[in-house]
Nucleic acid binder design. Structure first.
Lengths: 218, 218
DNA sequence: CCGACAATGTTGACGCTGTCAACAATCTTT
DNA sequence: AAAGATTGTTGACAGCGTCAACATTGTCGG
């Protein structure tokens, strides 16, 4: 509790994770290193290894954290949005895109091949991985089921497959946007990125069922 | 032409690119290094720098190559598939998935944030980047327009946005599959990955219009 | 209160990486 | 054949992830 810098940092683990997020956001995955991270936290270059067995494990932990945040964002949107399940679903799609835009490094970390590999190798040792609170897919599936129940999505489709289809398009759109593809194509055609996104979303909305107008802005 | 190993390799550039593909497929992006690549090609560790200014530039070249290959695969599918444009579009979706499965490293390279950044920095110096023959999006958009013309896709949607929507869902599905998400979820529900993919594709097909049965296998 | 033991942090080393500078061999052109 | 441009080699540098050995601090049984 003193102001003196003690030999023991006593909550280095958490501090490292927080600094890691900022470091990755600032310098990208390329410029992210354990040694810079240690320096940022004001400890020696091997101190992090008392809390994470490897860089891979630290990244996997960050990825888990990302899923928890994404799930939370989706749930918050779902509970905030009033009206039909269909509107909820569209709002959740927007929330997914927002999350991807605001935390691009989180997303690319959560869904990169390396990220998954890291998570798997860690999950085999720490069972809290892939627990319920990090299931970012669940909320989506629930809403899809609700859409089927209210008739705004084809009730004869298998809910899992339908949810995957919805997830795929939103995920794909988010990644293509993050990679700059949307901006590139939009520029070629003299549109803004937001206009293009809204237009694509209108197509999704049209596919989701025969219902009313398209909601919201990007 | 002699059997002797000459000082000058005379087509090192091409040899490096080919070895790079194999190296990446074997060891993943993580284990891919310029020095290993040089060793594979039987040259010293700095020889590649006579042909590529940096690792980034080599990767960007590979990425361009991937787009050329993907475009070729899509065009081949389009010209092979007979029948309605709608069937072509679905076949091209399958082709995209196949390409992603058979060359996962190519795909993650082509669409990873680092890949794009690398490409951009190279494109600003070498203008052949993003030329017509590497436009893997064009063939898709053409087919989408054909679908609109024949009435199997909503003619009132803006073709660009519609194409993006289609691309997004196929791209997202391909990436989620490559990252193991589909396998994971399928296993949880006691399905096979292929069954799940087919089911998702059926949903896409259903969205694409009111037409007949779903084609093909995965 | 003290001594043992576990937890946490530090120093120094290892091999690997991307890249640069200086030098050497070869090809091309005159 | 001489000159200059290409292409390949050697050696060095800083930065990386990680391990081993050691130092400091917190915790707990006596």
């Amino acid at each position: 509790m003193k102001g003196t810098k003690s030999y023991h940092h006593k909550d280095l683990r958490q501090a490292l994770l927080q600094h890691a997020v900022r470091l990755i956001q600032d310098e990208g995955m390329k410029g992210f290193s354990m040694r810079k991270l240690a320096a940022l936290a004001g400890v020696s270059h091997t101190a992090p290894y008392r809390h994470f067995a490897s860089k891979e494990e630290l990244v996997a932990t960050l990825m888990l954290d990302g899923h928890i945040r994404l799930r939370a964002a989706l749930l918050a949107t779902a509970s905030t949005t009033s009206g039909r399940a269909r509107d909820k679903l569209l709002a959740m799609g927007r929330a997914y895109l927002d999350f991807a835009r605001e935390q691009p490094e989180y997303i690319s970390l959560m869904f990169s091949g390396e990220g998954m590999a890291a998570a798997m190798s860690v999950a085999s040792r720490h069972s809290e991985f892939f627990a319920e609170d990090s299931d970012s897919f669940g909320p989506l599936e629930e809403t899809v089921r609700a859409c089927q129940a209210e008739g705004s999505l084809d009730p004869s489709s298998e809910p899992g497959a339908l949810s995957f289809a919805v997830w795929s398009q939103v995920h794909g759109l988010a990644l293509l946007r993050n990679e700059g593809m949307i901006r590139l194509m939009a520029a070629e055609r003299g549109h803004t990125e937001d206009d293009t996104l809204n237009a694509v979303f209108a197509v999704f909305s049209h596919w989701y069922g025969p219902a009313g107008a398209v909601g919201g802005e990007v």
